[in-house]
Computed example of a mutant assay.
Amino acid sequence: MESSGDIESLSAITLATHDMARAVRFYRALGFRIVHGGENEAFTSFALGSSFLNLTGETHAPIGFWGRVIIYVSDVDAFYRRAKAHGIEPQFEPRDAPWNERYFHLTDPDGHELSFARPL
């Protein structure tokens, strides 16, 4: 039988940055683990379980549009405290949503919105 080419998973999401060093420091403060690149590179990749969050410093990449990346964490409240301990100010305290997730949002230095969540 011929494969239908079903979607299996999300491999990675790539966000543009104006300042790679600043962006790398931000994500490392949140506990993201670098698997490629770094502060002085044009492209950096962080492991997120079996997926990746990439940063690109490419100058042709448009920055200024809105989007949100939703990342599951093992403990939303602990992750919130970690962000605050590193001087990162989330948009609001963790809350339970009607769609059965506990979550909070914060914004990275380039304006990308990140939601950290866990199913209830």
Rank of each mutant, 00 (worst) to 15 (best):
I88F: 11
I63W: 00
F32P: 04
A47K: 12
V73Y: 07
P62A: 02
R102M: 12
I13N: 05
D108Y: 08
I71T: 03
F104R: 13
D75A: 12
I13G: 09
W66T: 11
S50V: 10
Y103H: 13
A85D: 15
G67H: 15
G87S: 08
R82G: 01
H36G: 03
R102V: 15
A12P: 06
G87C: 07
H86E: 12
S45C: 06
W66K: 12
A29V: 02
G64F: 05
G5A: 11
V24G: 00
D96A: 08
T59Q: 14
R82D: 04
H60L: 04
F43H: 09
L10T: 03
I34H: 09
H105D: 15
D96N: 10
H18I: 03
G31T: 10
P90I: 08
E2Y: 10
R68L: 08
V73R: 03
I13M: 06
T44L: 00
L106I: 10
M20I: 07
H112C: 02
L106Q: 05
E2P: 15
W99F: 13
A85L: 11
D6V: 07
P109K: 05
E113Q: 12
K84G: 01
A83M: 14
G31R: 11
P62H: 07
A12V: 05
M1W: 12
A78K: 09
H86P: 00
D77K: 13
P62S: 03
H18M: 07
H18N: 13
S50K: 04
G57Y: 07
A42S: 10
I34T: 14
P109G: 07
T14M: 13
D110I: 05
G64N: 01
P90W: 13
T44Q: 01
F116W: 13
I70V: 13
